[in-house]
Design a protein around this nucleic acid. Structure first.
Lengths: 241, 241
DNA sequence: CGACGGATTGAGGGGATTCAAATGTAGTGG
DNA sequence: CCACTACATTTGAATCCCCTCAATCCGTCG
């Protein structure tokens, strides 16, 4: 698609857009940081970057005093264990904020890699906090608290459940996320590979694949390339109960 | 032990101690909220409660605008799924802060139950925030960010690991916690039952028990009632790598 | 002492993994 | 544009780890 700058691993936009005038405001800002004071956010942060597919946004351990808002596209966060094996800890899509875990230590807790061409807004914490606005911090607190709650929700999805329950719950959770951001909850694109899904859920790729085909045979879902269609929500929800 | 108030599920201390004069200050305050401004913390919060074993500190869904600092004892946090099955999401011990997940919604995300006689300090958020101290909020942010990092660490321990690795990593993580709070890292009391450990790790009780005996046979650990002794750290650490 | 809950040990079965191979899809360069 | 390659996905067969079921043992408390 993009002829220039193929080898570069990121490309900064020439003309940064104000958050207050950003077309993604309805999905990015409300989902994230400061619902009311968009113009304040404009003053202190906002540096949009465009990333190609499979580019590293930040690396584990690197100095990091920013968080990133995903304007478009999607990323995966992962660590590399002592054996060199990648373990995905989270996926993030349109409207999500990435990098909150790194806030305390000042260095990135995970790698963050785009799964497709993506636009991310860097929000520098120093500038954010320099505003001395209690609202900014308390919104961040809200965001992190919600993330913590999500974290244990995902945990519940992993512990003591069958492989099928893991996969179904995963698909439904993405559906919910899409719906919350004004997109279709019954048909969406899965930006990650089966291998990534398996890694994230702690399953073998083959198991994930087998479950997809089983669900298709039962007419509960459909897949067309990376497009996933959910045909029967109630049936799926009954599986995870 | 305590003859009076057996049926009541909590007992408020008659004479609250100031945080600045609290004997637990070295483990409670630094581990938690406001390392420097202890006297500020005194003014705005601090309501110590004594709980008997197996008492509910708060219930899932209940209105909650406080967090709790554990001065002594330990608690488990859990949810009840639609089938009525308990799923433990976290254990907390001396020096921990409980209830951070509930901050966003204003209602408790889990049940919180003492596993032994425990002393908890309730910190009311309204009073905390009323101080308008940026330091308080930014310390809370630090705390939550660290908790988020811990959360994904625990996640790594659950996903894609053998039962033995789960148990060993669990024992080592408690050891680390104990050490960080000035207690012995090689000998400590496990306040939770095998059933609770199994539930937390997503294993069967029998599996956990078998692994304990296997580790004992290999002289890596020892158990005397609920007292656990770690004999060989390097060997244990090599198992989880 | 007897009762109860927690912990341990054994035997057997099942769900998920591993190994192996074929098919499908996307990306590359001639 | 198409062959070629690399990678992702799917399917099959065999194995294994962990769970379930069952019985016993142990420590605590009434």
């Amino acid at each position: 698609m993009n002829q220039i700058n193929n080898s570069a691993d990121e490309m900064t936009m020439r003309t940064p857009i104000q958050c207050s005038q950003c077309s993604m405001q309805s999905i990015c800002v409300p989902a994230g940081l400061v619902p009311t004071d968009v113009e304040i956010l404009d003053k202190c942060s906002r540096e949009p970057h465009l990333f190609n597919k499979r580019n590293i946004v930040f690396s584990e351990g690197q100095k990091l005093n920013s968080v990133f808002a995903i304007k478009s596209g999607s990323v995966k966060c992962y660590t590399i264990d002592s054996n060199g094996k990648q373990q995905i800890t989270s996926f993030h899509m349109v409207g999500d904020i990435v990098g909150l875990e790194s806030l305390a230590s000042g260095s990135a807790a995970t790698y963050c890699e785009t799964m497709e061409t993506s636009m991310l807004c860097e929000l520098k914490l120093s500038k954010l906090f320099a505003q001395e606005l209690p609202k900014v911090e308390s919104n961040l607190l809200q965001l992190m608290s919600r993330r913590l709650a999500n974290c244990s929700k995902h945990y519940l999805n992993i512990v003591n459940t069958s492989a099928e329950q893991k996969v179904v719950a995963f698909l439904l959770s993405i559906s919910t996320h899409m719906h919350q951001h004004g997109l279709s909850r019954s048909e969406y694109r899965l930006p990650m590979t089966r291998t990534d899904i398996a890694n994230y859920l702690g399953l073998a790729v083959e198991t994930v694949s087998r479950i997809f085909t089983a669900l298709k045979e039962q007419q509960l879902i459909n897949t067309e390339q990376s497009i996933l269609t959910i045909n029967d929500f109630t049936a799926l929800e009954s599986r995870v109960a």
